[in-house]
Simulated assay, not measured.
Amino acid sequence: MTKNSPTIFLLILLFWGCNSPTNEIHEEPIRLTLSEANRLAELPLSCMHVEYPNKLNQTLAD
């Protein structure tokens, strides 16, 4: 065995693994109704009035 045998083996294994056939999964696109889309859009907007501390020590000192 030569000194480069493990390296060559790993390269062959890498290329063999990359060329193996894949099982493609065909998923349906996500469909939202107008009410669901509005509910999702309101989630981040409902937290906009919450004020968070600007400095980390304001939370650690409490």
Rank of each mutant, 00 (worst) to 15 (best):
S46Q: 10
G17I: 00
E36K: 14
V50I: 15
L43I: 14
L43R: 15
H26E: 11
F15K: 01
P44D: 05
E51G: 04
K3E: 08
T7C: 01
P6D: 12
L32R: 09
P29Q: 07
E27I: 13
L32Q: 03
N23T: 10
N38A: 10
E27L: 14
A37L: 15
L32G: 00
L14C: 08
W16H: 10
I25F: 13
N19I: 08
L10M: 05
Y52G: 01
L34T: 02
K55I: 01
P21D: 04
I8K: 02
N4H: 03
A61W: 02
S20F: 02
P29F: 04
E27N: 10
N23Y: 07
R39V: 06
H49Y: 05
E24L: 08
H49Q: 08
S46W: 00
V50F: 10
P44F: 02
L10W: 03
L56Q: 06
A37D: 07
P53H: 05
K3I: 07
N38F: 06
M48H: 13
T59Q: 10
E42P: 02
S5V: 08
H49K: 12
K55Q: 05
T7A: 12
L13E: 11
H49A: 10
P29E: 09
V50D: 10
S5W: 07
I25P: 03
L32E: 00
T22M: 10
S35G: 04
M1L: 03
Y52W: 11
L40E: 04
N38K: 15
R31S: 08
S35L: 09
N23M: 07
H26K: 14
T59K: 11
L45V: 08
Y52T: 09
W16Y: 13
F9A: 11
N57I: 01
L32K: 08
G17W: 01
K3P: 03
V50C: 08
W16N: 13
